[in-house]
């Protein structure tokens, strides 16, 4: 032991240095890339595990949006008689529900990243960001399936000759989805980081996401607000999701209020939230095992 080359040790290149704190934005993208297989295995696991030992299997992915749409048609369309911008109710609600539930699933699940994976995080290291990313991707698959359902409805109404006008805004769809994913991820990361030590926020999340839905034009069109209270209008317009959902709806149905400026503003806001989320997550992930 005495003959170790201590002098040599100083000049060595270390492949890993573990320190109490790292830079605010050291994302370790290389590490993330090395573990990309893990991301897809997590996605697969989530997907397969959901419908194992169920009779209807993946059909559950359809049942949920259909039932929600029917419920909205009865409550908001039938009883409250909210405007649907002149669109068939089923299409109007389903477009909202499909887009909204992707965002809601992302935020609900990623916000539990640390607390529900404590057992696995406590035993082995892999880039923690893999976990929320896998949630975003597996929800994307679910969204894809539900989106096909929506397309089916759309085609049905087109054939029937209803007044729906899909337009070139459809090409914006990947961007819109990306924006929703980033917002869900960003907020989810912030919430999951804040809840490792103090759990208070978890009680707020489910409830908060529901409130968030009413601040987003899911069950009503943006145009319905034009003659309403200015404060309400402001709140809804401040919501970065508003332009996304409106644009999503407009691209397929041809009805809605889209302004490119609002979309850009919303994009910038989302980017800002995402960066904050990643910074906070990075700060927390190293030590959360001690407090979770």
């Amino acid at each position: 032991m005495a003959v170790r080359s201590i002098q040599g040790a100083e000049n060595q290149e270390w492949s890993l240095v573990i320190k109490p704190k790292t830079n605010w934005l050291s994302l370790n993208l290389k590490d993330l890339w090395r573990y990309r297989d893990l991301l897809f295995l997590f996605v697969r696991r989530d997907f397969v595990a959901v419908y194992k030992q169920t009779i209807l299997g993946p059909a559950w992915f359809f049942i949920q949006p259909i039932l929600t749409t029917v419920m909205y048609m009865v409550v908001f369309g039938g009883i409250a008689k909210l405007s649907t911008d002149g669109m068939p109710q089923s299409l109007f609600y389903m477009s909202g529900v499909t887009a909204w539930s992707y965002f809601a699933d992302c935020i609900n699940k990623t916000s539990k990243t640390f607390t529900s994976n404590a057992a696995i995080f406590g035993k082995v290291y892999f880039p923690r960001l893999i976990m929320p990313l896998s949630i975003i991707v597996s929800n994307l698959i679910k969204f894809g399936i539900q989106f096909l359902l929506f397309m089916g409805f759309l085609v049905f109404f087109l054939v029937k000759g209803s007044d729906v006008n899909p337009n070139f805004y459809i090409f914006l769809m990947p961007v819109l989805i990306l924006m929703m994913a980033c917002l869900g991820l960003g907020l989810g990361l912030i919430i999951s980081s804040l809840t490792t030590k103090y759990r208070d926020l978890t009680h707020l999340v489910t409830f908060g996401v529901q409130l968030f839905m009413y601040a987003t034009p899911v069950v009503y069109p943006l145009s319905a607000l034009s003659d309403k209270n200015e404060l309400i209008q402001k709140i809804v317009m401040l919501n970065p999701l508003t332009p996304i959902v409106e644009a999503f709806r407009y691209s397929f149905l041809g009805a809605g209020t889209v302004s490119p400026i609002d979309l850009v503003i919303s994009g910038v806001t989302i980017l800002f939230i995402l960066i904050i989320g990643i910074i906070v997550f990075n700060r927390i992930e190293k030590n959360f095992m001690d407090t979770v």
Binding site: Q12, S15, L16, V17, I18, P20, V124, Y125, N287, D290
Partner: peptide, 24 residues
């Protein structure tokens, strides 16, 4: 746990050369 990066040290540092795997 610190060596396998499950938690981080309060002070000080560890330098490691090579891929590390743990069977905790």
């Amino acid at each position: 746990k610190i060596l396998s990066r499950i938690t981080s040290p309060t002070t000080g540092e560890i330098k490691i050369k090579g891929r590390i795997a743990s069977l905790l």
